[in-house]
């Protein structure tokens, strides 16, 4: 058998290293050739292992990213579900509430317009309306109440009622409007207490009662709120 065939046979038959070296019979040149080829075999195995390790590392990274993404997707899905649930279970705004929000407007200060002259001493009424104009309704309520106790002016009760509405105290507002006598109001305020009474009942989800008040206004064709009252009546639930 020639040397090349011998070397090929060693590799083809997977002869163990020690036996292979023995089979070479002390031929130094052949041993060097065998060692080169064996080194080639080792190099190829190593190269393949390195490539496979690299591939497995990439697979592992990919899998980790996928798992993380799944966790995030799960969290996002849970969050979405939670938001949908919260949205479904949210306190529903009734039609009456929506109508109220559409029709309600703060009544302007027609009694004591704010003065530009800072040096002039303000009366108590003016001070109360400054609070009202500034949107400080809680303080305005205190001021209007105090003034009404001493002055007994109907407009004070009217603005007290509107201030209660601004702070969401509709029942107190109704008390104020009920207490005042329309005829005692300044002409340009007259009838508006009916409008606001209607709106209070609307906000308290009493559309039928609201309608009764609004009809009082709608039938008074000369009142500025007559047209708006008719419109609101047509939209009542």
């Amino acid at each position: 058998m020639d040397k090349e065939d011998l070397l090929n046979r060693i590799f083809e038959e997977n002869i163990p290293d020690a036996d292979a070296i023995k089979a070479l019979g002390g031929d130094h040149e052949l041993l060097e050739e065998y060692q080169f080829r064996k080194s080639l075999q080792v190099a190829l195995i190593r190269k393949r292992r390195v490539a496979q390790k690299k591939l497995l590392h990439q697979i592992s990274l990919k899998e980790r990213v996928k798992r993380k993404r799944l966790i995030w997707l799960g969290l996002a899905a849970s969050l979405s579900l939670l938001l949908v649930t919260v949205w479904i279970l949210r306190p529903q705004s009734s039609t009456a509430e929506v109508l109220y929000a559409q029709y309600y407007q703060t009544f302007p200060n027609r009694i004591a317009p704010s003065l530009r002259d800072q040096n002039k001493q303000l009366t108590e009424v003016q001070k109360a309306f400054v609070l009202y104009d500034n949107g400080e309704y809680s303080d305005a309520i205190v001021a209007f109440k105090k003034l009404y106790e001493s002055d007994r002016e109907a407009f004070l009760l009217f603005y007290l009622g509107v201030s209660h509405m601004e702070t969401g105290q509709f029942k107190l507002a109704l008390q104020s409007f009920k207490e005042l006598k329309s005829d005692d109001l300044n002409p340009d305020l007259r009838g508006f207490e009916i409008w606001y009474t209607g709106l209070c009942h609307l906000r308290l989800n009493e559309p039928a009662v609201a309608k009764e008040y609004l009809e009082l206004l709608s039938s008074n064709v000369t009142h500025p709120m007559s047209e708006l009252s008719r419109k609101l009546i047509s939209e009542l639930p």
Binding site: D17, Q35, F36, K38, S39, L40, V42, A43, I45, R46, K47
Partner: peptide
């Protein structure tokens, strides 16, 4: 076996 052929294998690699 790898260790025996280590240095030559590295050059081949």
């Amino acid at each position: 076996v790898e260790d025996v052929y280590d240095s030559m294998a590295t050059v081949i690699e």
